[in-house]
Nucleic acid binder design. Structure first.
Length: 758
DNA sequence: CAATATCGGGTTTTT
DNA sequence: CCCGATATTG
């Protein structure tokens, strides 16, 4: 049988072979670090005969974990095929997994902690059926805390407070510590909000994202024996993206490696982009002090990008001081220069990118393209430009499936059935669908729970006992709600999961409510709910129980359902980490946007912005284009503001770049026409005039001359078939008034709405 | 109590 | 521009 490690380069091979003791791998972008780790794991199992279950690999995203898991499985499977005789005892292995084999544990930090806590959390006084609060639950709870303390949300918006609390938690700071070290009264107030928030979380038997890590660390601190038993179980530990670990994660790593020092930390200080979430680049810079016997290996050969892309990216990031420094190289000596395009308007920038994307896909329909930007708000213009050109794209970010209201409602019912202390779930669905339990009644329940230290559920039961105090119909509504949840709780134990969810949607009247609404939106929601039932059925088949399913639903993020097959992907720079594309368009290289104005004031913040830029640039395999706009409109305000080109653009030596002009890519006449309009606008601006040009007919990427007339029958994806009753405007601003039976008249822009002739 | 109309404020990045 | 929070009405 061939040697497994022959498939690695010498640097990667050294990583795989260094199996004992602490190892820090400084892996540049595109240097095959995942490859090195997966081979290392396979090597441990195959050559060193290490039991798979004693191997742990921790990543930050579910996607990275899935990917690594799959690659390890594939690697091991292909090796077995090569030597079938060595596997004659197949199926008889005692600790066999579902497919007949034990597997290494490859998981995110959060999922690992949930796993541990579901077994052990009782030692901290929580019950094992604790709820996991996501951002939405957290915000609601925080608002309630502000209310409790009689604070308006003027001083801190719930979001602000939450982000500061989260930061503190990730630093391992308690409310008491925050109060004691507070230097101003605002921070003192915040500390009291923090304290109240913590107490209410605990009363709800709930953990937020940060708690998942924090409580695990607390647990291990409380019982060293327990920590050691986990440490002994996980004899070989791998940490991916080590540069993004925060202090709490760091403590957890120390606890897990207490009985051995077999830690393989892989990271790249140049790709540390989560400082704002408490990630501390120090962890990677200090590794050798933390683990004295540490070996340090570097992966500097890049397999992804062309040399000129690497040179440009390196030129930018080399302006940072806080780094170990490295020299990325590739054998891909030839390649196009980095394109730089300066548009007059943000719309023009998006148009240009869409045009280039179309050209790239025209040359190679299978090319992958990433359109990357700093803030989610930038996505809209790119979406519109893509749609106008009929380019299929996939948007990462925004609302994920599990964040949709109807899905969260359904999950809240399941959560409440499962754990009646779950306050967030309780409040979410107590009157959804409307069942006659309004604000006043809910406030009464809350008051009762506060006064008597009851959970909301217990307070509800108390109200039922007292019965007649309130109006009769309220009492009946409460009783029927109570009975509903009890039925669901009972069914949750008895029924198969998919059945349970189907029954839940039915019994709660949720589906009926949506059906009654009889709107296209409601139909979409119904479809989503059916999709949820499918997901539940799939989970059931995979052997997941209800808790495991709810845990997973709580921990999935938008980036996770990113689909490799989509040719064009729109996403933020943060979401793009770990991905690669044949062509990358990095947009909005303007001061205030990249670097972002919120973090360009101090050096540390600015360096992180620079790393963000670096991450974006190094996603590109063949083609990298950086774009900026001379003006930009903020929050839909009337006028446009002038911008300044990003300092990062100036950090790239000219020899690596080529200036792109729109004329260089003209394929059809109207594109040229569009650009000439843009240049007129720019001229007017420089001479001090606001452009009065209406978006011209020729500028519209959709062929000019309206295809819509009064009386046309049209089909809309949401509203179905309708009749055009009025037309106004032309080109991009053409507006139709369409009457849809059942929905009345709607005004819409055919430029954006997907309308077909029916 | 629920459904509709109006107003004001808000965007950095996310497990 | 889009969202939620508030006021008003049925």
């Amino acid at each position: 049988m061939s040697d497994l490690l022959d498939e690695l380069n010498s640097e990667q091979r050294a990583v795989a072979e260094q199996t004992e003791g602490p190892l820090l791998v400084l892996a540049g972008a595109g240097s095959g670090k995942t490859r090195a780790i997966t081979y290392r794991i396979a090597h441990l199992i195959e050559t060193h005969r290490v039991a798979p279950w004693s191997i742990l690999a921790v990543t930050f995203t579910n996607k990275a974990a899935d990917q690594m898991r799959e690659r390890v499985a594939r690697l091991l499977a292909s090796r077995r095929e090569q030597s079938p005789e060595s596997m004659s005892g197949e199926g008889a292995t005692p600790a066999a997994g579902a497919d007949g084999r034990a597997k290494p544990l490859i998981s995110t930090f959060h999922a690992l902690c949930v796993r541990i806590l579901r077994r052990e959390i009782e030692a901290l006084g929580y019950s094992r059926d604790f709820a996991i609060y996501d951002e939405d639950d957290q915000t609601r709870l925080l608002k309630a805390c502000l209310n409790d303390l009689g604070l308006s949300d003027k001083l801190f918006t719930p979001r602000q407070a939450l982000s500061r609390i989260s930061y503190a938690k990730n630093q391992g700071i308690s409310p008491e510590e925050m109060y004691q070290t507070a230097r101003d009264s605002d921070t003192e107030t915040l500390a009291s909000i923090f304290g109240r928030y913590r107490d209410r979380l605990r009363a709800a038997n709930a953990l937020d994202f940060d708690d998942l890590l924090l409580k695990t660390v607390e647990l291990f601190e409380k019982s060293v024996e327990l920590a050691d038993s986990y440490s002994r179980r996980f004899r070989y530990i791998h940490i991916d993206e080590y540069q993004d670990t925060n202090r709490v994660q760091y403590r957890l790593i120390r606890q897990l490696t207490r009985t051995h020092h077999n830690i393989c930390a892989v990271g790249d200080e140049d790709q540390s982009i989560y400082r704002w979430r408490g990630a501390s680049i120090e962890n990677i810079l200090r590794f050798e002090e933390d683990f004295r016997e540490a070996k340090v290996l570097r992966l500097e050969r890049n397999y992804r990008s062309t040399q000129v892309i690497l040179d440009g990216a390196s030129a930018v990031v080399s302006n940072n001081r806080a780094r170990k420094g490295k020299n990325l190289w590739t054998e891909r000596r030839t390649g196009r220069s980095i394109g730089v395009y300066q548009a007059g308007t943000a719309e023009g920038e998006a148009e240009f990118v869409a045009g280039e994307v179309a050209a790239a896909l025209g040359a190679n329909p299978n090319a992958s393209v990433g359109v990357l930007y700093r803030t989610n708000a930038q996505s809209r213009l790119f979406e519109e430009a893509m749609r106008a050109r009929r380019i299929q794209y996939r948007l990462v970010g925004g609302f994920s499936f599990y964040a949709r209201a109807e899905i969260r409602d359904a999950l809240a019912y399941a959560r409440l059935a499962f754990n009646q202390r779950d306050t967030a779930a309780f409040l979410r669905i107590i009157n959804t669908p409307p069942r006659g339990i309004g604000e006043t009644t809910v406030a009464q329940i809350q008051a009762l729970s506060r006064e008597n230290r009851l959970t909301l559920w217990e307070a509800l039961e108390e109200m039922l006992v007292r019965g007649k105090e309130g109006p009769m119909r309220t009492a009946r509504a409460l009783a029927s709600f109570h009975a509903l949840i009890q039925t669901l709780a009972e069914e949750g134990k008895r029924l198969r999961m998919a059945e349970f969810f189907r029954s839940l949607l039915d019994r709660t009247g949720y589906l009926a409510m949506l059906k009654d609404q009889n709107t296209p939106e409601a139909e979409g929601r119904i479809e989503n709910l059916l999709e949820l039932v499918n997901a539940v059925a799939a989970a059931e088949e995979a052997g997941e129980n209800l808790t495991a399913f709810l845990d997973r639903a709580a921990l999935v993020s938008d980036t996770d359902d990113y689909d490799e097959r989509a040719r064009v992907t729109l996403m933020t720079l943060h979401s793009a980490k770990g991905l690669e594309f044949d062509s990358v368009f990095l947009a909005g290289l303007e001061e205030g946007l990249l670097p972002h104005k919120m973090s360009m004031d101090d050096d540390a913040g600015l360096e992180e912005e620079r790393r963000l830029c670096y991450v974006g640039m190094t996603r590109a395999k063949d083609r990298l284009v950086l774009t900026a706009s001379a003006t930009r409109r903020f929050w839909g305000e009337e006028g446009r503001r002038n911008t300044h080109r990003s300092r990062f653009l100036d950090e790239i030596p000219d020899k690596f770049t080529e200036r792109l002009s729109s004329s260089g890519r003209v394929e059809t006449n109207w594109q040229g026409a569009f650009n000439s309009r843009e240049s007129v606008e720019q001229f007017l601006r420089t001479t001090g005039f606001e452009s009065r040009l209406k978006p011209s007919r020729i500028s519209a990427p959709i062929p000019a001359g309206s295809k819509w007339r009064r009386g046309n029958r049209v089909r809309h994806p949401k509203y179905g078939i309708g009749t055009v009753i009025a037309c106004e405007g032309e080109g991009e601003t053409e507006k139709l008034t369409i009457s849809f039976p059942g929905y009345g008249a709607k005004k819409m822009l055919p430029h954006f709405a997907t309308l077909e002739k029916a």
